[in-house]
Design a protein around this nucleic acid. Structure first.
Length: 348
DNA sequence: AAGCATGATTGCAT
DNA sequence: ATGCAATCATGCTT
């Protein structure tokens, strides 16, 4: 506002009827004297500079917005790379097994690109307007400097003021862009909203790992990555899956018994030779303590998961308390049996 | 529509 | 930082 009034004021100097007067003033013989007097007055009042060092500590709010826009790939270099979303998409489709959520991501990305486009064009507009405005003001000041003293500092100050004003406008733009991105994210990327069950194959792989490492179902980071790759999901999804699986398995072993047997047999078959395609023998929950004795609170151990045929049993025994003690302490280590004989159960 | 299954998130403990 | 437990929100089946 200050700057607006500032050069709305001199506009009457320029308006056509007064341009003549201005010229007359410039050519007036008293003009130099007048000018010097003005300079003197100005010197005395000292209202010129002083306020030039208005603090500008790089608004943290602005920094935040900038960072976010950069992180979101709106502000950074062109192309979809660099954004968290793109990275996630790349990770998800790394195995090339998940075409469906990459579709969602492309949808998301096109929307993001739209936002990005608007943002950039607006930004450019503002920048251009700012430049035009600045040069305009500079011209005006230059013009005026012929009739009144205008220190270069003042010019700088004016420019500073103008830039601040425009950056305030830019900040609003950034803010609303951020909001738009947030909304977009919550619409598209909030996995909770768009939960998709994993593919049959993926759960197969995960279950296979889980039941063949029933003694210690805590995949290492590398194992998780491997599984993630195989299943076409992210590592954190693998972690989620195992977290859920462990807790749900523990909570109701009976329910998972059949599944356990199926996968146990499966892995046994795949590990041993490849004959035996006999895949389901539910073995009723008759508290056969062969497998993991689950001494949780109430539930008696009613489970027969036939472990012991896991390839690596305790690959990385991190001495984690919970599972080991609760679920499967004994019998897991039965290396005496070679891969030939698959126990004797599974057959009713 | 109800009810279960399932992936994700949150709060807490370690 | 990681896992557990509870919970949420959605998907699927009945």
């Amino acid at each position: 506002m200050t700057f607006l009034s500032f050069f709305l004021l001199p506009s009457f100097f320029l308006s056509s009827p007064s341009s003549l007067r201005k010229h007359a003033l410039n050519c007036h013989r008293m003009k130099p004297a007048l000018f010097s007097v003005l300079c003197e007055i100005k010197e005395k009042t000292g209202l010129s500079i002083r306020s030039s060092q208005e603090e500008e500590p790089v608004d943290p709010q602005l920094m935040r917005l900038d960072n976010m826009l950069l992180a979101e790939g709106v502000a950074g270099p062109e192309k979809g790379g660099g954004s968290a979303a793109a990275a996630a998409a790349a990770a998800a489709s790394g195995g090339g097994v998940s075409p469906d959520n990459s579709i969602e991501h492309s949808d998301y990305r096109s929307k993001l690109a739209q936002i990005r486009h608007i943002y950039h064009s607006e930004l450019e507009k503002y920048e251009q307007a700012c430049n035009e405005f600045t040069t305009h003001v500079m011209n005006l000041l230059r013009e005026q400097s012929r009739t009144r003293p205008v220190a270069p500092k003042e010019m700088e100050r004016m420019v500073g003021i103008i830039h601040r004003k425009f950056s305030a406008i830019q900040m609003q733009l950034k803010q609303s862009t951020c909001e738009a991105v947030m909304i977009l994210r919550s619409r598209f990327l909030d996995a909770r909203r768009k939960r998709r069950n994993f593919s049959k194959q993926a759960t197969e792989v995960l279950n296979e790992y889980f039941y063949s490492h029933l003694s210690n179902p805590y995949p290492s980071e590398e194992a998780k990555e491997e599984l993630a790759k195989k299943c076409g999901i992210t590592v954190s999804q693998v972690s989620n899956w195992f977290g859920n699986k462990r807790i749900r398995y523990k909570k109701n072993i009976g329910k998972f018994q059949e599944e356990a047997n199926i996968y146990a047999v499966k892995t046994a078959v795949s590990v041993t030779q490849g004959g035996h395609s006999r895949a389901s023998s539910p073995t009723p929950p008759s508290s056969a303590g062969s497998g993991g004795s689950f001494n949780l609170s109430g539930s008696g151990d009613m489970f027969l998961g036939m472990p012991g045929l896991n390839g690596d049993s305790y690959s990385s025994s991190q001495a984690n308390g919970g599972w080991q003690e609760a679920v499967t302490p004994s019998s897991v280590t039965s290396p005496t049996e070679g891969p030939g004989s698959v126990h004797s159960d599974t057959s009713n």
